[in-house]
């Protein structure tokens, strides 16, 4: 399997702020790679380095086998980018901008452009000045998705889109996966990454703290359990792998590590379970595990 994007030990400082602090990232060809992190974690800085807009202070990055700074123009013919906050030339219409960007990249597929304009419900005759944020975002999305490129770098691409358009976006990206195109999708919309990504990298304070498939990540995380028992459930706090126990009378709530779930449930069974709910961790909880103070618990 070839690698579309690889970054090794990237560093970048803006004055005293270390935006990237030894970031490692690997995106395999043909996968949709989720790039998750809160605002200010360094996602955009990393992507701007991969685009050759900003030069890394240290480390090495390769995009589609090339050097993102040195070979930027050649690489940009083979990739497309959508920022999270799209600014357009106020005097140009959306249609003009889509065509222009496609042509500057070396040509977009006209049929796909028209289909995307239709699907995203965009009026291409309006001047960019009159577009809402969501509409500006659509212009950039159509321009990027209509071009025939190998790699899409999407930096929180659906900010400002309504849920309907968000769904369209997910459909279109799903179709891209069928075409063996690579997508690096940076986001803090966790459900979006959950639905689309094959693999996920979690970035925090300029470093990737965890990377893998969602299945692998679940393996590392806990399950949230809430139960009501006939008799007060004692002794849970002595079980291995149980965290954050809250007990009020016959109701308990706790998190349990994946490999200790079985033991915890068996223990609960001894008190006569009246109701039980458990759910796999959402990506929100995955994030909390890395950004909250959960690690100490």
């Amino acid at each position: 399997m070839t690698t579309a994007v690889s970054a090794v030990d990237l560093t970048k400082a803006y004055g005293p702020t270390r935006a990237l602090d030894g970031l490692d990232l690997t995106v395999r060809s043909g996968e949709v790679h989720g790039f998750l992190g809160p605002n200010g974690a360094g996602k955009s800085t990393a992507i701007r380095i991969l685009l050759g807009l900003v030069r890394a202070d240290g480390g090495a990055a390769a995009v589609l086998g090339g050097d993102p700074w040195r070979d930027s123009v050649a690489l940009h013919r083979r990739l497309a980018y959508v920022p999270g906050d799209v600014e357009l030339w106020p005097d140009l219409t959306g249609g003009e901008i889509i065509d222009l960007l496609g042509r500057l990249r070396g040509g977009a597929v006209a049929a796909r452009r028209d289909a995307l304009v239709e699907r995203f419900d965009l009026d291409p005759t309006r001047r960019a000045r009159t577009y809402s944020k969501g509409n500006r975002q659509k212009v950039a999305l159509v321009a990027a998705l209509a071009s025939d490129v190998e790699l899409l770098l999407l930096d929180e691409p659906t900010s400002g889109l309504d849920p309907l358009m968000e769904a369209v976006f997910q459909q279109v990206v799903g179709e891209l996966r069928g075409e063996e195109r690579t997508v690096l999708l940076s986001s803090h919309i966790l459900s979006q990454v959950e639905k689309l990504a094959d693999r996920v990298s979690i970035i925090r304070r300029g470093r990737v703290v965890q990377s893998g498939t969602l299945a692998e990540m679940r393996h590392l995380t806990r399950t949230a359990v809430e139960a009501t028992t006939a008799a007060p459930a004692d002794g849970l706090d002595r079980l291995p792998g149980v965290h954050g126990l809250e007990a009020t009378g016959t109701r308990v709530r706790f998190d349990v590590d994946g490999d200790h779930l079985d033991g915890a449930l068996k223990h609960l069974g001894g008190f006569g379970v009246l109701s039980l709910s458990s759910h796999p961790p959402t990506l929100e909880e995955l994030m909390l595990r890395h950004y909250g103070d959960g690690e100490a618990a």
Partner: peptide
């Protein structure tokens, strides 16, 4: 109302130079 503009770019609008002129001509 705001007048609708072109739904596609003019054929000549295909280079950085053309964009620079398009942005500045008015």
């Amino acid at each position: 109302g705001t007048r609708p503009g072109r739904s596609t770019a003019a054929p000549w609008l295909r280079s950085p130079l053309a964009l620079a002129w398009r942005l500045q001509r008015r």
